[in-house]
């Protein structure tokens, strides 16, 4: 996981770039779902949270989950992590049925997943360095390797200067970025974002989305991005990241040169999937609820 024996190319901002994709694009692994929900139901007492939810995410794909508050978006993420168990249905991670897994069984599954929480969920009593190093410390990784990895991840989110700070000293946007750095330690195959831009000003929200785009396009990470903000949908489903000749990461809009096929949208309403498709299909959808959500009117 942290085997850095082979030298990797470095981007202008100091981040390593994955260029040596082992599997070709038409490999069966790339088509097989990394995450799959099959008819998942969940209710708390009489309140139905998820009602027959089914969807799948391929390797390297980002799924944006949209919906109003209380619609079951964050619950979906908690189910993937095994923090909640469904009443019925099946959940597969990397082809493995985790539905009946115990807390102990889930530990190895969680190694593959990075999670970015709504407010960052940083551990208040330890520094930024220790927060980002948390997962590695749990795995008894050596200190030198921990420091290298922590600095690499903090460089990725452009927060290396904050390494010694305590979470209380950080702004909301910085907390989310540290949360992203912490989630990326150990190079997880899947990253889950639970409303990472909620309550942030537009430029900071844009920065968070750019980080998600970089991960998707340059690191080949599969992800779920829970949000209720259409701005995020705009950024994530119409822009892509590439490295230019100077080795800098640049963001370009899809168009005639390239059409993004690795980002799709799911919309949840009262625990049901009412839409699953591309952002263009979403914007053209005639359902009044979707129209209201997308354009703020019927």
């Amino acid at each position: 996981m942290l085997d850095d024996e082979q030298e990797k190319p470095i981007m202008a901002d100091g981040n390593e770039v994955i260029t040596d994709f082992e599997e070709p694009i038409n490999d069966r692994n790339r088509v097989a779902p990394v995450i799959e929900f099959r008819d998942v139901h969940l209710a708390f007492d009489d309140k139905v949270i998820l009602d027959g939810v089914s969807f799948s995410i391929r390797r390297g794909e980002t799924k944006l989950i949209l919906g109003r508050s209380g619609g079951g978006k964050s619950t979906t993420i908690r189910l993937i992590l095994g923090l909640l168990k469904p009443d019925s249905g099946q959940i597969f991670i990397d082809g493995e049925d985790i539905t009946g897994y115990t807390e102990e069984d889930m530990m190895h599954v969680r190694q593959k997943i990075g999670m970015v929480f709504q407010e960052g969920a940083l551990f208040d009593s330890i520094s930024v360095y220790e927060n980002v190093a948390y997962r590695l410390r749990e795995q008894n990784v050596e200190e030198d390797e921990i420091e290298h990895e922590v600095r690499r991840m903090l460089r990725f989110v452009d927060l290396e200067d904050a390494i010694e700070k305590m979470p209380a000293e950080l702004s909301g946007g910085m907390r989310r970025r540290v949360g992203i750095a912490r989630a990326l330690v150990g190079d997880p195959e899947i990253v889950l974002y639970d409303e990472p831009t909620a309550g942030l000003d537009p430029p900071t929200a844009r920065t968070i989305c750019e980080l998600a785009i970089k991960l998707r396009d340059l690191q080949d990470v599969s992800s779920i991005f829970v949000t209720h903000e259409m701005n995020n949908v705009g950024y994530l489903s119409s822009e892509y990241a590439i490295i230019n000749e100077q080795g800098e990461v640049v963001f370009e809009k899809e168009g005639e040169r390239l059409c993004l096929i690795n980002t799709e949208v799911i919309m949840l309403r009262d625990g049901k999937v009412i839409f699953n498709g591309t952002d263009e299909q979403l914007r053209k959808h005639r359902d009044p609820y979707i129209q209201n959500f997308v354009y703020g009117k019927n």
């Binding site: 992590l81 190694q111 709504q118 551990f123 208040d124 997962r135 749990e138």
Partner: peptide
């Protein structure tokens, strides 16, 4: 406080 700020969830998510 750790529960309401999702720190416990984060802990579980990181395999602790």
């Amino acid at each position: 406080s750790m529960v309401v700020s999702q720190q416990i969830d984060a802990m579980r998510a990181f395999g602790t």
